[in-house]
Design a protein around this nucleic acid. Sequence first.
DNA 1: TTGAAAGCGCTAACAA
DNA 2: TTGTTAGCGCTTTCAA
Lengths: 354, 354
Amino acid sequence: MPGPPRVTLDDVARRAGVSTATASRALGDHPHVAAATRARVREAAEALDYVASPEATRLAGGPTGRVAVLVPHPSRWFFGELLEGLEAALRAADLDLVIFRVGGPEERAAFFARLPARRKVDAVVVLAFAVDELEHARLASLGVDVVAAGGRVASYPSVGIDDHVAGRQAMDHLVHLGHRRIGMIAVGDTQRSGAGPSGKDVGCLAPEPDGRTSAWRAALGDAGIAPDDELVVTVPWGGEGGADGMARLLGLRSPPTAVFAHDDETALGAIRTLRRAGLRVPEDLSVIGVDDHPLAALTDLTTVAQPVRAQGRRAGELVVAALRGELADGLPPAELLPTRLVLRGTTSPPGAPR
Amino acid sequence: MPGPPRVTLDDVARRAGVSTATASRALGDHPHVAAATRARVREAAEALDYVASPEATRLAGGPTGRVAVLVPHPSRWFFGELLEGLEAALRAADLDLVIFRVGGPEERAAFFARLPARRKVDAVVVLAFAVDELEHARLASLGVDVVAAGGRVASYPSVGIDDHVAGRQAMDHLVHLGHRRIGMIAVGDTQRSGAGPSGKDVGCLAPEPDGRTSAWRAALGDAGIAPDDELVVTVPWGGEGGADGMARLLGLRSPPTAVFAHDDETALGAIRTLRRAGLRVPEDLSVIGVDDHPLAALTDLTTVAQPVRAQGRRAGELVVAALRGELADGLPPAELLPTRLVLRGTTSPPGAPR
DNA sequence: TTGAAAGCGCTAACAA
DNA sequence: TTGTTAGCGCTTTCAA
């Protein structure tokens, strides 16, 4: 690996017949550079295929041009979509994305203990997880901008959806269909690192603890139905979790006629359990999810769609704005992107003719 | 954003009572440093919570400590898994992962034209796509090590599976069940950027053009069945593609009794079409995929499992070895990880009693 | 074994 | 508007 011959700013400056200082200014779009000079420098740079050394740039006081992203589970569709959107927005601004996985509690603790992103990035994007007090302090110690995507974190600018509204869209749909006994398969927040070091978990830094579940309760209340907590089961994320949750609901003395699953993958798991139990969806039991995962369309799953990639993209734009110092002071903005009900084939009125 | 007070090597050296040169050597595990001195420096660094500035390190001639990964579609399970494995291996070696999306032809062309990774990384990992001659040259111009994961690229060290073997495992299973008319839903290689600039596509740099399809042909041949090309349909990647492919196969004068889908998501799409057509799986038609996607277990899909995350992890290890100069010279190693048939509920003998 | 000193390539005062 | 110059924090000769 000999490496290509390095073209330096000196080379460019020499070719353009100016000093390196002028060359630097010209390339950096600084004011006070004659248009002709600027053009000449640009040409020289172009001709020489010049690329500034990011290291030297940074060392001399510039930004790193890098953004860290903290992602719990890169292989899940939701996070992958966020990542795609984020990458696109940052790439457009010529920023590089450095990925840090913070999945399980150990990985997460390791990240915040060692802070491997230290001194390496201009900003950090947190993907869809609650940040506790200690973590918040560690992040602050990086001295860089922080943005949250895919979930709200009160202390940072963020972009996400309103989980309560999304939940209401799902629940209201079921209620309007005439269901009165509606189950909920919630997903245990495996993201939480547990209670903080002080023993108290810091709610104010966490995303809405349970927007979708609170929507379940509220929708029932508004419909004059007394919420039966027995109908809420909490499971680990994923299809298997959904399958288990559904099994638990079916084991109730009085099972629900409809189920609101935290997300599409959980919903698909629930449907598997129903199929295995010989129950028909939606004739015997309706199921609705959240996300509009590609497989939802494929499996004809009724769901509440959320624009995931757009959340990532918008978060990237917030990062760019923050780095330009264009973010308004005061309360960090919390942008909520719209969700919408997508009617498909897994919901129908209760006891509908097969 | 005031940023934290920066601790420099000078601070560490001063605290340890040595020169920066010695401190640098001590921290960098160089020879010719007294054990006691080394310990003292280490302590000082620890106490001061010192982190070397990567920029300064690099500028002074060290490595960047960064690896670029070129990924076509971050939101797909397969790529997400590769990413997770890769990140884990690199993180263990204290290397950062910078992500570059190279999805569509434009993005891809843009990447290779601008080469935004230039001067920023010590190595590049290419995730599961063919690299044409021009791209190969551009990558070489980076002057860094290149490793391929999730697919073979002849000129680079790589880790993947043997697509032909995987295909045979699937096909042989169907053949052994007694199927003689077996369809194949292949996935169009949307990764190829098309013919190179010279008009000729460079086969030698591409992964096996079609291991799974060649397995289809070979398995039939070995079973004494004349392959009918009509039974091979090529579709775009994804569930919808699979659904279309299946529809085309059903439209044949003589449809197959079993179908080998390129991957699980394609297979799931195919199954949807079958369900909508009122056909039972596997009684009327068997379906098998490749991957062992989490949803395969959930949907009881018979498949050929491949260890995706392990491929990513192993690729990361190859990168680390390469950076240490530990990679044997000569032919780049092509590691093939084992695949295995996972029997589930979507395959059965043809015309099996329902 | 350790220290002094010279850069690495760039940006940002400060002068001109 | 442009040039001169002094670092940014580290690694690495070369001497001691």
